[in-house]
Design a protein around this nucleic acid. Structure first.
Lengths: 345, 345
DNA sequence: AATCCTATGGGTAACGTTTCCCAAAACGTG
DNA sequence: CACGTTTTGGGAAACGTTACCCATAGGATT
């Protein structure tokens, strides 16, 4: 079987000829620019339909606009991120902007590759979700392209931010567990050692919120943290470590639902019952947390809402690149389900 | 806080001036083209490093190449698709190609929007995962841009395909359940009514495979199908329907793991025990299926492998657009876990 | 009736890169 | 040493779109 040859693209010149107007006129109609009579608009629109014309983004890109916004997601497997993405695409659906995503994958180098690639491709704007890159890199990027950073705390003069109050979220979990009577509450965090990032990354702030809340409840001696990653495997390995500690924790606060999934697996393999032997709480309130057999207590941080706000900020920023940057922060809520209960004994 | 002004891009002209050569020479070095001496290459490379030059994709796009491939995924929430994506990015990591994704979302119109957008952006190639668009649309797209279609069966002269033998996969499940002694085995499918698609879509073929396998085991009178969607919610609603049927099925074969998640929830809410009261099997063997508390019997269809093969086919096709199209088909295997057991009684 | 607007439309030069050519120099062969 | 061949390098024209200008024609204002 042989593929057929490809047809040639219809250009603005073809449209202009067909409508008997100049290319300038067609361009103006396309962009709803000033200087077009209703009659001309109608004729040009007709010609566009007749010929099936579509603007070629590369050519537009050379003139400065591609009508494309790039979204960088850290980990497509984490079921929380689709929520944010839904919010973004919802907000951008009615606009002329097309959303394209790239996976950030592992670490700073891969992130840089993605941000560079997006800049090279002339993105009109970028939304970076929970980036791990250095602040200076982010500001350099934001200097080239309008950028909104999602998830990271801290304000910058170069980019807008949307985040959730992770400090409060962690406290919600600790307070809930402590109210149930737990004292040995352990936490599994996504490892973060870089001191410059430690104040900004949501994972680090959740860990800090855990420590503060434990102290506030007089449980400073019970603070117990394992550092792994926000992945299912990270949760699995982290829980295995925690379960061998003596005395064993009576509750585990996983920094993300996806981590809690791994914890559940390790706990079940260890022959322990949830929540009779051990309580487990997650973070993000993903759709999996609501699943019957899992029914995970989790912190809800309206991801969709975060996404729509990020998209709106980006559009505003594209419209006015020098307006002061904004910082939007949402407050999380706790959703209690069946994986948390009073400690045994 | 006010954002700073943005710097101007370094172009090939700047590099040429700095290296004291022509822009043609720089272009040749960039593309490893013929007609460059080692000395010139060295000088140009040095200049590129000095100036931090990066090629501008839009300008390249105007000449026909953007070094970008587009991937369309139907549903980012389905944990099977990240596997395919990993395979694709693995295969493309060492190449000059950058991967950009777009969510296909709901239905044909949204898919067309995505494929058009990718064509407009001058993608060098596209990988469409389980597209629902009409065959003629796919062939039109493939006529404009090298395209690989993943998941759909059926051969086309316009595009290459990579798929898994869904017919065999469905049979694996039915045979497994029948061997355990089940007779009332129900199936939840992703609804497909379009006759042109019914022969190509993996979901439809799984349903067909279910019917055939039931007949082959002499269970044609027990065939029972609910049509919903391949989503968690679809599984939930589908299972609710099945559980009210009388007599109730003793086993449910969900067309995808994500569907099985919803089934588990409905079953648990109905107060039934898995697998004592009812057996459940999924499809895709996602990481969630392996989770301790879930431990779902599922059909494994090496998603990563599918992805790398699709990417390789795409690269080959970009290299030679007239070579005959290829069709790669993989064979699935069954992974039995704790959600399937002999029927009660 | 002369002047000044405003609305409408078009001509044309960019934007950054590649590709098709052609020119000059270096090399190999008899 | 004269000739053909290969290697090395550059000039310049695209590619499709937008933005900055300018030209014209009516209409309104004096």
């Amino acid at each position: 079987m042989e593929p057929p040859a490809q047809p040639k693209r219809v250009t603005i010149v073809d449209v202009a000829r067909h409508a008997q107007v100049s290319t300038t006129a067609v361009s103006k109609v396309l962009r709803n620019a000033y200087g077009t009579s209703p009659q001309m608009r109608a004729r040009v629109r007709q010609a566009i339909d007749d010929l099936g014309y579509r603007p070629f983004a590369a050519a537009r890109g050379m003139r400065g606009q591609t009508y494309t916004v790039g979204v960088m997601l850290p980990d497509i497997r984490n079921p929380f991120f689709p929520e944010i993405l839904d919010g973004i695409t919802d907000a951008l659906w009615e606009t002329d902007y097309q959303v394209l995503m790239a996976p950030g994958r592992n670490g700073e180098a891969a992130e840089a590759k993605v941000t560079e690639a997006m800049i090279d491709r002339g993105m009109d704007g970028m939304i970076l979700v929970a980036p791990v890159s250095s602040r200076s890199h982010l500001e350099r990027v934001a200097g080239m392209v309008p950028t909104v950073v999602v998830g990271r705390h801290g304000r910058s003069a170069a980019y807008d931010t949307v985040s959730d109050d992770d400090l409060a979220g962690a406290a919600l979990v600790v307070d809930h567990l402590a109210d149930l009577g737990h004292r040995r509450i352990a936490h599994i965090e996504h490892d973060e050692t870089d001191p410059r990032r430690i104040e900004e990354m949501p994972n680090a702030i959740r860990a800090d919120g855990y420590r503060r809340a434990m102290r506030a409840r007089g449980l400073e001696d019970e603070i117990s943290i394992v550092s792994t990653t926000y992945t299912q495997r990270g949760g699995y390995l982290g829980a295995q470590q925690l379960l061998t500690r003596s005395p064993r924790p009576t509750a585990i606060f996983a920094g993300a639902d996806i981590v809690a999934m791994g914890v559940l697996q390790a706990v079940s393999e260890a022959g322990l019952e949830v929540p009779d032997d051990i309580s487990i709480a997650g973070y993000d309130n993903t759709t999996f947390a609501a699943l019957g057999p899992i029914s995970l207590t989790s912190v809800d941080q309206a991801g969709r809402h975060i996404g729509t706000n990020a998209a709106q900020l980006l559009i505003d920023r594209i419209g006015d690149r020098v307006r002061p940057t904004a910082q939007i922060k949402f407050s999380p809520t706790l959703v209690t389900r069946r994986t948390t209960a009073p400690p045994p004994g």
